[in-house]
Amino acid sequence: MQPAITDQTMPAEDAAVAAGFEHFYETLRRLTPRGPLSLTAASTLRRLERSGPHRLCELYAPEGISQPAMTQLVTRLEKEGLAERTADPTDGRAVVVSITDAGREAVSHRRQVRAEALSALLQGLTPEQYEAVVAALPALERLSDLAAEQAS
């Protein structure tokens, strides 16, 4: 049950959850392998992997960057063989960006390295703590879905 919000203030529990997420986000960033992909590049490739090809104009806002910055990023990803641009089949004036096999491999490698590092950390939890993390996964997925819905 969600605590009542009074005087337009955030419940203390929500503030604690936000702080916990921030701390865990920092941990995940440290577990992410250093390499040629920036966080934005990796996120863009994951989006293309997960959701399929997108028009260039659909990619920049969810990543929190400008359209010119996304154009530069896609150009770099294309030069590195990680993404490709093709004409939009429904509108020849527009460009569609999709992930390549090399892009999928790069995303998979980052995911694998991070998963291995996280697995090592999970070994330090008690069985009860581990079960609590596993039990929270559906709620975390739903939060991610809600955030994606709000962004679109």
Rank of each mutant, 00 (worst) to 15 (best):
Val107Lys: 14
Arg114Lys: 11
Ala117Ile: 07
Leu121Pro: 04
Leu82Met: 06
Arg114Ile: 03
Gly103Arg: 08
Glu78Gln: 13
Arg85Cys: 13
Ala117Asp: 07
Lys79Ala: 14
Val97Asp: 12
Leu137Tyr: 04
Val95Arg: 14
Thr126Gln: 00
Gln123Leu: 11
Ala83Cys: 09
Val97Met: 12
Pro138Trp: 03
Gly103Thr: 09
Ala115Thr: 03
Ala132Asn: 09
Leu118Met: 07
Asp101Val: 13
Arg85His: 10
Ile99Ser: 02
Val97Gly: 11
Arg110Thr: 08
Pro89Glu: 04
Met70Asp: 10
Ala132Ile: 02
Ala120Met: 12
Arg104Leu: 15
Val95Leu: 13
Ala106Asp: 05
Ala69Pro: 01
Val134Ile: 02
Val95Ile: 09
Tyr130Cys: 05
Ser98Arg: 14
Gln129Asn: 00
Leu122Ile: 06
Glu84Leu: 11
Leu82Cys: 01
Ser119Cys: 07
Thr126Ala: 00
Pro89Ser: 02
Gln112Pro: 04
Gln129His: 01
Val113Gln: 14
Lys79Met: 08
Ala83Trp: 04
Ala94Val: 06
Tyr130Gln: 06
Ser66Lys: 08
Asp101Lys: 15
Pro127Met: 01
Ala117Val: 06
Asp91Cys: 05
Thr126His: 00
Thr71Ile: 07
Gly92Val: 04
Gly92His: 09
Thr75Lys: 14
Thr86Asp: 11
Leu137Thr: 06
Leu118Val: 04
Gln123Cys: 04
Ser98Met: 10
Ser66Ala: 07
Val134Cys: 00
Glu78Asp: 10
Leu82Ser: 02
Val133Asp: 02
Asp101Gln: 15
Pro89Phe: 02
Val133Arg: 03
Gly81Met: 06
Ser108Pro: 07
Thr126Met: 00
Gln129Phe: 00
Leu121Met: 14
Val95Asp: 06
Thr86Arg: 15
Gln67Leu: 11
Val113His: 10
Leu82Pro: 03
Arg104Met: 14
Leu73Cys: 02
Ala69Ser: 07
Glu116Met: 13
Ser108Glu: 13
Arg85Tyr: 11
Val74Glu: 03
Thr126Ile: 01
Pro89Lys: 04
Pro89Asp: 05
Glu116Ser: 12
Ile99Leu: 11
Gly81Glu: 06
Tyr130Thr: 02
Gly92Thr: 08
Arg76Asn: 13
Glu116Lys: 12
Gln129Tyr: 00
Val107Tyr: 11
Ala132Trp: 03
Ile99Pro: 04
Ser108Lys: 15
Ala135Gly: 05
Leu122Phe: 07
Ser98Tyr: 01
Ala94Tyr: 08
Arg111Tyr: 11
Gln72His: 12
Val96Pro: 15
Leu137Ala: 07
Tyr130Ile: 00
Asp91Lys: 05
Lys79Tyr: 06
Leu125Arg: 01
Ala87Leu: 14
Pro68Gln: 02
Glu80Ala: 15
Ala69Gln: 06
Pro68Tyr: 02
Pro68Asp: 04
Gln72Asp: 10
Ala94Glu: 14
Glu131Tyr: 00
Pro68Ile: 01
Ala117Met: 09
Asp91Tyr: 04
Ala69Cys: 01
Gln123Phe: 05
Thr90Gln: 14
Leu121Val: 05
Arg110Val: 12
Gly124Thr: 02
Arg110His: 10
Gln112Asp: 15
Ala102Asn: 12
Glu84Pro: 01
Pro138Ala: 04
Ala102Pro: 03
Ala87Arg: 15
Glu78Phe: 02
Ala132Asp: 08
Ile99Asn: 03
Leu73Lys: 02
Gln129Ala: 00
Val113Cys: 08
Tyr130Ser: 05
Gly103Cys: 10
